[in-house]
Amino acid sequence: MRAEKAGLRIFKRFLMAFSQLFVRSFIALVGMGLFLAGPARAADLSDDSASILAGNCVNCHGPSGRSLSAIPTIRGVNEEQLRVRLMAFREGRDAGVTVMTRLMKGYDADQIAALAKWFAKDRAP
């Protein structure tokens, strides 16, 4: 009985690790695809306009993007990683996502690049 349960636990752990690996490599592949497609032009948006886009995010992600809760902190995240992640939300390729897919479809590649640039820097809102 006990051995059976332990076996099941190990199997579950294996499954979890495998699926995490799968998700990570998937995100990495998606990132490469976007990179090959060419970098977005964050520079086209003024800083003021970028700050307005960022203002939409901090309502959930915390003041300045520093979270107080279960919602991830986005301040100080590596610019390229954040851009790739946000683009994956936009394309609906990130499984298990609740609202981010619906929200990121509201922004184009340039706006997403501007957001990633905005939150990568350590600064006030």
Partner: peptide, 23 residues
């Protein structure tokens, strides 16, 4: 999914109130 959105709702409230009245 429903549980995550319940938790995110709580998080939203904490975040927006801190953004406005907090800090």
């Amino acid at each position: 999914f429903r549980a995550a959105e319940a938790a995110y709702g709580e998080s939203w409230y904490a975040a927006i109130c801190a953004d406005i009245w907090g800090r």
